[in-house]
Design a protein around this nucleic acid. Structure first.
Length: 561
RNA sequence: GCGCCCGUAGCUCAGCCCGGAUAGAGCGACAGACUUCUAAUCUGUUGGUCGCAGGUUCGAAUCCUGCCGGGCGCGCCA
């Protein structure tokens, strides 16, 4: 859009002025309004190379730009040590508004990743218990990242990997079976109360004569059903639930081991078969086949990732908890050993997410399915709206540890930023309803004089809106949904300010029309941003009681006569 | 010991990838604004040695090095 045009202008000016062209022309939106609409430090960057004073270089560039006057540039100023500040003709804001309206739900989307088939694997919690609260971070992050990648034109496939072939499931089965028989779970077993409840249903459904194996299978399928329900409740859908068992039953694991053997990257040692991952960058070699003849997690995982590639995906992304970071290099090294990790087939990308620290009553709650005292995602969803849960998980970067204080999140649920944003969206809808009641129709946008939108608030709103596409692109490229949530909060603030200071519906017909379109463009920005975050954009908000904050427990208090 | 992540306002966090002009938001505290398209809003005030020390640079919260503090790993577990 306008940024590209400016970049082009600067490039041409550099050429005309006989100056070298840096690979990228930096164009910033200055924090200060009096520094213009856009600013570039290019003259500062060239000073050393050219051997001239930055301000003199800036002057040469400005002269070249002026010589080739562009309609959308009102003036160029040289400021500070040598910044070139661009002041654009106000028409660019009108153009932005029209572009947004024209693009509609596609605003912020592009096709830079067109042709890419991305497999995004996330959550993948063991099917041995319900999703714990911290898992909500992977649910929300994964879904948002998938949305972001899709917005850039990629075909994104959401996948859940079920570790249903390993020892964890056996331990789970033994624990469930013990509960079924009224015994405590084994020492290394799962101690959670949910197994007692499940054992009761197991007995009700299958009777008193169940074997341990049957209990395990029943329990496994019941857990998967619970996982699906929890995920559905928060609005996340997986395209594939991939069973690890398939890798074994189909012979994939054997086959990948055979392939590695033929590639001469394995060796025998201490009765086990090892993979020379050190040849491919790993810190030490890894075992593929234990001395007892069974395959390791790595062997299975290599078969799994090879399978994903064989299914036609061009790019694999895994979201893992940071407690698995030691395995990243092993997986990637193993995939290189298999011949992947080339320009055509890149190595799997692993996004590491720092773990959630969960607080309740000011105390840290250790989240371990084994230990028993877990707070589940379901528990959270029982107390707060799914939108609140999602937004909370998307407020900060995945690289930093998140402290999820259950008391704070539930107590301040109503103050959650998600409502601030949703309220802005609802306000637009409300304006539209009021306008309709007043018999005001929005006329075609290209018949409206948008140049009347000159209020400080209106311009600020449009400026903020104009940055949306690049924020989406940045957010997608950085796998950083928090950039999106930060933008939408800032943008909502701009809208609330506009709403307050610029009455949309007025006696001035043209101004009303222009502001209705500005509202609509804002709605598009809010709705598209929320959609990327996986959050609803409601047309109205439930009315809050005025005395809400005085009344702590309005739900179940006794009737005070 | 080695590896990854974090350390920014009283609290919770953006900003760091890709260095720019006076470092931002929310919450908290204090003071204001509803005859108004829903006040779940808006406005103002308060508040920061960007962990510490060096280095690179015209310019460092941002890049590099070394420390300090916190989290997580370092299995023929998954």
């Amino acid at each position: 859009m306008i940024r590209d045009a400016l970049q082009q202008t600067v490039r041409e000016a550099l050429r005309d002025a006989d100056l070298p062209e840096p690979a990228t022309i930096v164009l910033d939106v200055p924090k200060q309004r009096d520094h213009g609409d856009f600013s570039t430090p290019v003259a500062l960057q060239l000073a050393k190379q050219v051997g001239a004073k930055p301000r003199d270089i800036a002057e040469r560039i400005r002269a070249a730009i002026d010589a080739n006057a562009q309609a959308f540039i009102e003036r160029v100023e040289i400021a500070g040590p040598g910044f070139l500040n661009f002041f654009l003709a106000p028409v660019w804001l009108s153009d932005t508004l029209r572009d947004v309206v024209l693009a509609g739900s596609g605003f912020g989307h592009n096709d830079s990743l067109a042709g890419q088939h991305i497999n995004l694997e996330f959550v993948s919690a063991n099917p041995t218990g319900p999703l714990h609260a911290g898992g909500g971070r992977w649910v929300a992050m994964g879904d948002a990242i998938a949305n972001l990648l899709a917005s850039q034109g990629a075909d994104v496939h959401r996948e859940y990997y079920l570790n249903d072939a390993g020892s964890q499931l056996d331990i789970f089965g033994a624990s469930l079976y013990a509960r079924y028989r009224g015994e405590p779970p084994p020492d290394d077993g799962y101690r959670g109360e949910y197994l007692v409840e499940m054992a009761g249903r197991l007995r009700a459904e299958l009777g008193d004569d169940v074997t341990e194996e049957a209990a395990r299978e029943w329990g496994y399928h019941d857990i998967v059903r619970q996982l699906r329900e929890d995920l559905e409740r928060i609005g996340v859908h997986f395209d594939t639930w991939f069973s690890e068992r398939l890798l074994h039953s189909r012979g994939d694991v054997e086959d990948v081991l055979r392939q590695l053997g033929e590639l001469n990257v394995t060796y025998e040692h201490d009765g086990a078969t090892w993979l020379r991952t050190t040849d491919f960058g790993d810190a030490r070699d890894r075992v593929l086949i234990r001395s007892n003849g069974t395959s390791t997690y790595l062997a299975n995982d290599l078969a799994y990732h090879r399978d994903k590639l064989r299914r036609g995906f061009t790019h694999l992304i895994d979201i893992w908890g940071a407690d698995h970071h030691g395995q990243v290099k092993s997986l990637q090294s193993g995939m290189h050993a298999l011949g992947y990790g080339t320009d055509d087939v890149p190595e799997p990308e692993v996004i590491l997410g720092q773990l959630v620290r969960l607080l309740r009553g000011g105390q840290e709650v250790r989240m371990s399915k084994r230990a028993g005292d877990i707070i589940t995602l379901e528990d959270i969803l029982d107390e707060v709206d799914p939108d609140v849960a999602r937004m909370t998980f998307l407020l900060q970067g995945i690289d930093s540890q998140q402290t999820f204080d259950l008391d704070v999140v539930t107590a301040q649920s109503m103050e959650n930023p998600v409502y601030y944003v949703q309220y802005a969206h609802a306000r637009v809808a409300s304006i539209a309803r009021r306008a309709a009641e007043a018999g005001i129709e929005r006329r075609a946008v290209d018949t409206i004089d948008l140049s009347v939108l000159r209020h400080e608030r209106e311009e600020a709103l449009l400026r903020a809106l104009s940055t949306f596409p690049e924020v989406v692109a940045d957010s997608a490229a950085g796998r950083a949904p928090q950039k999106m949530s930060t933008w939408v909060r800032d943008f909502a603030r701009e809208f609330h300010g506009f709403y307050r200071d610029c009455r949309v519906i007025s006696d001035d017909d043209m101004l009303t029309q222009a502001r209705l379109w500005l509202s609509e463009a804002s709605r598009i920005g809010l709705a598209n941003a929320l959609a990327l975050l996986g959050v609803n954009a409601p047309d109205e908000m439930a009315r809050l009681d005025d005395d809400e904050d005085e009344d702590e427990d309005e739900d179940e208090t006794a009737p005070a006569q």
